[in-house]
């Protein structure tokens, strides 16, 4: 090692010591402190690199070990998810049918959206579906979790039962729902007809027209509340019992305990549930097709949803660029909603 290098190392070392001393003595400004810490890390790395010379540095070795942990998953993830996503982004600005030459479209794909009635219908329906499903599922699963967190007989059975709809396959479960809600033969309409004397021509058409979105929402709540119930249950178990005891001593009733203990304590759980619910709701596709699909599996303007339109444009019309543009709209909404929720969460927790 040359003398020049040693001198350089010594100089860096002294800089490092200075910084460490500064941090140890305490820095008022948090930002400043962070800055110093990251500089320390950087200096430490440079020094160790220079010291070890041509040999692999310790940092490098540590990185290699870490990457060996990540690699099996990350390679698969990068190849099968990340790369296609990058392509999907690019596609939104192109015109391509999957075979012929690619044409650049600029923003034309996005401009087309404005005058597309099917897109507008799909957009509207998706929003209505989400606005209906997210709060309903959240309330239902929270209520269920609170009930099943009490000491009740057969709790395990009830918990298992409420998880059944989530576990059951969509193909199987939707075909049962279609039987139960069959407009002229199903038991639900039979009861309406025989017990509540609803005239035959007034019987609800559950899977078309104005009711179809309601059916989709009810079905989703039924199918997924068990799943979110488990998450809430986990959240509830994290609340210390002492809080409730203190509440009881203060004479709080059930509602007050919920309002002032349970609900605030579950804030981060609720945040997680709402984010996951929103993301999953915007992805709705198979439920709509399986419950409301017509003779050729087609959805009408009262039941079409964004992902259905993405699928249709891509795999039926082979307008991949346009399909990707719709997909980007979907992604943008999901992102926006998530960011808003994050911001809100942060604001209320500060």
């Amino acid at each position: 090692m040359s003398e020049k290098k040693i001198a350089e190392i010594n100089m860096l070392q002294s800089q490092l010591d200075e910084l460490i001393a500064k941090v140890c003595s305490g820095i008022e400004d948090k930002k400043e402190e962070k800055k110093c810490l990251s500089r320390i890390e950087k200096l430490r790395r440079t020094i160790s690199k220079m010291r070890s010379g041509s040999k692999l540095s310790r940092d490098f070795k540590r990185d290699i070990i870490s990457y060996s942990f990540i690699a099996p998953n990350f390679i698969g993830f990068a190849v099968f998810t990340l790369i296609p996503i990058v392509f999907a982004f690019a596609l939104a600005f192109l015109k391509w049918d999957g075979s012929n030459a690619i044409e650049f479209m600029g923003l034309k794909n996005f401009k087309r959206l404005g005058s597309d009635v099917f897109f507008k219908a799909a957009f509207k329906n998706t929003i209505i579906y989400c606005v209906g499903t997210v709060p309903l599922t959240m309330i239902a699963s929270l209520a269920l979790a609170i009930i099943l967190n009490q000491k009740v007989r057969g709790r395990a059975i009830f918990r298992t039962l409420s998880f059944f709809p989530y576990v059951g396959s969509l193909v199987a479960v939707t075909s049962v729902w279609k039987m139960l809600f069959h407009p002229s033969k199903g038991p639900i309409n039979s009861i309406l007809y025989h017990v509540f004397n609803v005239p035959l021509d007034k019987l609800p058409q559950w899977f078309s027209g104005g009711l179809v979105l309601l059916s989709l929402i009810l079905f989703s709540v039924w199918k997924y509340m068990g799943y979110y119930m488990v998450i809430y249950l986990a959240g509830l178990q994290g609340i210390s019992g002492e809080l409730y005891e203190a509440g009881s001593l203060d004479g709080a009733n059930t509602w007050q305990k919920f309002r002032y203990i349970t609900w605030p304590q579950l804030r981060s759980t609720t945040f997680f549930v709402v984010v996951m619910l929103t993301i999953n709701c915007f992805k709705v596709y198979d439920i709509a097709v399986m419950l409301a699909g017509g003779g050729s599996g087609e959805l009408t303007t009262s039941s079409t949803v964004l992902v259905y339109y993405i699928y249709q444009k891509a795999f039926v019309d082979w307008d991949l660029g346009y399909s990707s543009a719709v997909a980007m709209v979907l992604f943008a909404i999901v992102l926006l909603v998530t960011i808003v929720q994050f911001a809100y969460q942060k604001k209320t927790s500060d």
């Binding site: 078309s208 017509g294 087609e298 009408t300």
Partner: peptide, 12 residues
């Protein structure tokens, strides 16, 4: 027209 066929036939 497939889609609107469904709309007409289902009374939407």
């Amino acid at each position: 027209i497939d889609s609107y066929h469904g709309s007409i036939m289902s009374g939407e």
